[in-house]
Design a protein around this nucleic acid. Structure first.
Lengths: 135, 135
DNA sequence: TTGATAACCGACTAATTTAGTCTTATTTCA
DNA sequence: TGAAATAAGACTAAATTAGTCGGTTATCAA
């Protein structure tokens, strides 16, 4: 139904929160969970994904937490989404790992190429939206 | 995960098939199901949705079937998608019926307005793609 | 050096959404 | 009047997403 997952929403809101609040101090998953009434476990996972994708830097231990790794002008919406939704694509057959194989319609598919064009345009939308636009 | 539903894919492929094959004769759900190995019941439902949305005209009875109601240059991707997926929106809170009420984050939502902009851009992509582009 | 705190990770369960099936009704043609 | 087609709604199954749980590792400070 072409809907963003909750993870993507969490990622966006967390990134925005960090961008606004960050004055050199780290921000914990707990703080974000409390602030937005998010499930602590879920937002933790989201932040871990952002960390793996170098969007935030993480610090373990007592005074640990997260901090944005770059300026909001350098963080693109597509990075946030891809971090938590590695294989977002409007159709199965456009997914990265798909070399032939798993198209639903095999030889009968008549829409792959046009949908690839659509996909590129959607990617472009997410590329041209930056975190700084959202603050 | 921002994926099109199978219904949307069916709608697209069926519409394309009708656009190419249609020489004044109606096309049945059965023919399309056989041609693409679609579930007959599902493609039937999809065609019924297209019919309700005036994208195809339906004829009941023995020599019945479907026929595109307009030229492929006048059929937009967004019409096909909306016909089978009435409330496609990247987030819950942008759905039509949503006047306040059901936002996941209530007063704490910080992303509704920027996402509305993104939604408009995505709509635009689907508006500017016509069935004729896909043939 | 130990206890508290926070990130990290993977397996699991629950909830929601999507896909698919079944049944029955209605229309139309020959 | 029977066969073939659309129409519609209820139901079931499968897949995806959301959320939970348990345990590990790292870091700080008392």
């Amino acid at each position: 139904m072409l809907k963003l997952s909750k993870k993507s929403e969490y990622a966006l809101m967390a990134a925005k929160y960090m961008a606004i609040k960050n004055h050199g101090t780290v921000i914990t998953a707990k703080e974000i969970a409390n602030n937005f009434n998010f499930s602590y476990e879920l937002i933790s996972k989201v932040l871990q994904s952002l960390s793996k994708n170098q969007i935030v830097v993480s610090y373990k231990g007592v005074k640990g937490g997260y901090i944005l790794s770059k300026s909001p002008v350098d963080i693109f919406l597509i990075d946030l989404i891809r971090a938590v939704e590695p294989d977002y694509q409007i159709t199965e057959c456009l997914k990265f790992e798909n070399r032939k194989g798993s198209c639903n319609y095999k030889d009968n598919c008549t829409i792959k190429d046009p949908l690839a064009v659509v996909q590129q345009k959607i990617d472009k939308v997410f590329y041209e939206t930056k975190l700084s636009h959202i603050i």
